[in-house]
Computed example of a mutant assay.
Amino acid sequence: MSFTKTTEQDSNYDHLEKMSVNELLKNINNEDKTVPLAVEKALPQIESLITQTVEKLKQGGRLFYIGAGTSGRLGILDASECPPTFGVSPNLVIGIIAGGDTAIRNAVEFAEDSISQGWKDLKAYNISENDVVVGIAASGTTPYVIAALENCNENNILTGCITCNKNSPLSKVSKYPIEVIVGPEFVTGSSRMKAGTAQKLVLNMITTTTMIQLGHIKGNKMVDMQLSNNKLVNRGTKMIMKALNISENEASKLLKKYKSVRLAIQNYNNGN
């Protein structure tokens, strides 16, 4: 199968510097509108990876994201939001970026080109065949990510990927590839734009669907969320009020007592 890096092809627009602010915004927005449609085409692939991930996590495994640059940052963002949103351990979903934590804010030269560091970074977490590793790379050619997944395959660790090019080297080494083909970027090669948006949408789907399947949502509410600020305490209080049809004062007392929306509702219903 041939491999064409559509993420690097020339933009459908030219002379961007001559466009007005209004023209730039409309054209960027028109390109952005195509991203959810590209994600829709990949839904069967996304479903396959999530189904496997849920089974692994039910058995005590973990979900790892590994990437470089924008892709690595998006993985870390998604992983970091799981504990406060779903009340899970920070060790359940883990984001790894080429170049380490420094690379979250600043580019680390040539970090993505290493074919040995990705596997070393995974091994630091005592990675095992109970876990799932998802490589994230818009281009599908990042050596750091590809080599890490090759090592995972050799060690019988389930692999997936999120990429924005068809038939990429990364897809070929992934057991469960996700390919969201968004086409050329508005600014040629700037894959933080449509490709980054596509990756974020897919990551939202992976963790949200997985956590719902694992029981961390009740109805449509984040009953396991961490009560880490006043906004979330107020949200939790309202959840309890609605679920139990009680006053705000009663709900607030229950939340303070049990420090968990789920436990407050359960204990009230059990007569405690």
Rank of each mutant, 00 (worst) to 15 (best):
A148K: 09
A147F: 08
I157R: 10
T142V: 13
K175P: 00
C164A: 06
N155S: 04
I157F: 14
N165C: 03
A138D: 11
E150A: 03
I162F: 02
V145S: 09
A148L: 10
K175Q: 14
S168V: 09
T141M: 14
S139G: 07
C161H: 01
L149T: 07
C164G: 06
I146E: 01
C152G: 10
S174H: 11
C164K: 03
C152E: 13
S168F: 04
Y176R: 07
Y176C: 12
K175T: 09
I178V: 14
I157Y: 09
E185R: 04
S139H: 07
L158M: 14
N167P: 12
I181P: 01
I157K: 12
E154F: 00
T163N: 01
P177R: 11
C152S: 12
I146V: 15
A147C: 07
S171D: 10
G140S: 01
T159F: 05
C161M: 04
V180R: 05
S168D: 04
L170F: 11
N156T: 11
N156K: 15
N151E: 15
T142Y: 08
A137H: 10
N167K: 11
I157C: 13
V173H: 02
T142D: 07
S171E: 13
E185Q: 05
V145Q: 10
G135H: 13
I181M: 08
E185P: 02
Y144C: 06
Y176G: 03
K166D: 15
G135E: 11
V145F: 11
C164L: 05
V173D: 03
G135W: 13
Y176D: 12
I162R: 02
Y144A: 03
V145P: 12
E185D: 07
L158I: 15
A137T: 09
S174M: 09
G140R: 00
L149D: 04
G183E: 13
N153Y: 00
P177K: 14
G140E: 00
K172F: 11
T141A: 12
G135Y: 12
A148M: 08
T159S: 03
V173Q: 03
K172W: 03
K172Q: 15
C152N: 11
F186E: 01
A137V: 09
E154I: 00
V173M: 03
A147T: 13
P177S: 08
V180S: 04
S168K: 03
S168I: 04
P143T: 05
K172S: 12
I178M: 07
A137I: 06
I146S: 02
N155D: 04
T141G: 09
C164V: 03
F186G: 01
G160R: 06
T163M: 01
K175W: 01
P177G: 14
C152H: 06
P169T: 11
P143H: 08
T163S: 08
T159N: 05
T142L: 12
G135T: 09
P169E: 05
L158N: 05
F186I: 15
I136L: 14
E150W: 02
I136G: 06
A137L: 06
S139A: 12
I181K: 10
Y144W: 05
K175S: 13
A138M: 10
I136A: 09
G140P: 00
F186N: 01
G135A: 07
L170P: 06
P143F: 07
V145G: 10
Y144Q: 02
S168G: 06
K172T: 07
T163G: 00
